[in-house]
């Protein structure tokens, strides 16, 4: 501040001259520009183009509002019903998927339930082990709800339940359910269907049926309380 204060008296005159010239130049340019813009043709062009832009952008916004509730970059595979032959395939080269989560039990994609101890290196249950059961509906009720998740999956994989599952699947695809549109085969369907879900809860913070909470049928778990 101090510097400017002292410097000014000497240079002021020059300053003003330069500034004047600058303003003059600007004014001319400005006037020419304004005159150009005010020509009817130019105005029309600007008007038309901005109107189109407006309409186009509004339309685009409108269409994006009806966007899907799922947007995925992962390619989707079609749903395949595995045949009984595939279930039976039990040579050594086969590699099984299994439910990894169990505390004591596991179920593989051939429908065998077994103890964690009896799991083989290829991920399959050892069918010869004492506790291994295939398509076991232990702990399940007639409404297809089970106490133990692994038995629910195993029961669900039973080929005799195929009709029921097809019904379930068609219902789900009608609902446009995000979860079930990404299923690829009946094993995944059973794994997913047997988990507790939004259909299992009462008042959001308790189970409808605290014991038989793993269901694969289209019936919902029956509420324990009379309401």
């Amino acid at each position: 501040m101090l510097l400017i204060y002292y410097a000014c008296p000497y240079n002021c005159h020059l300053c003003f001259m330069v500034l004047n010239e600058y303003f003059f130049c600007c004014k001319m340019w400005y006037a020419a520009l304004v005159r150009f813009i005010r020509r009817r043709l130019v105005l029309g062009i600007i008007f038309a183009s901005s109107l189109t832009y407006c309409i186009v952008s509004f339309l685009r916004e409108g269409s994006s509002r009806n966007m899907m509730y799922q947007e995925t970059m992962i390619e989707r595979k079609p749903f395949v019903w595995r045949t009984l032959q595939e279930h039976k395939d039990s040579n050594d080269s086969v590699i099984c998927r299994n439910s990894v989560q169990g505390r004591l039990l596991l179920v593989d994609d051939r429908g065998y339930v077994c103890h964690r101890n009896d799991l083989m290196r290829n991920g399959c249950c050892d069918p010869l082990a004492d506790f291994s059961r295939r398509y076991s509906c232990e702990s399940c009720k007639d409404n297809n709800c089970c106490v133990i998740y692994e038995y629910c999956v195993s029961c669900c994989l039973d080929p005799s339940k195929r009709d029921l599952l097809e019904l379930v699947l068609s219902k789900l695809s009608a609902e446009e359910n995000v979860l079930f549109r990404t299923l690829t085969d009946d094993y995944e369907l059973c794994l997913t269907k047997c988990r507790t879900s939004s259909h299992s809860v009462l008042h959001e913070n308790s189970y409808k049926d605290p014991t038989h909470k793993h269901c694969f049928g289209h019936e919902l778990p029956r509420s324990r309380t009379p309401d």
């Binding site: 959001e204 913070n205 189970y207």
Partner: peptide, 30 residues
């Protein structure tokens, strides 16, 4: 909503799941 979304996360084989949420209800058994 969480139950269904969690089921989907299991199926998608998610590695890490961030929950910047919380509430006092640890007796929400489901």
């Amino acid at each position: 909503w969480f139950l269904d979304a969690f089921n989907y996360a299991i199926m998608r084989k998610i590695d890490i799941l961030n929950l910047s949420i919380g509430g006092p209800d640890f007796m929400d058994h489901p």
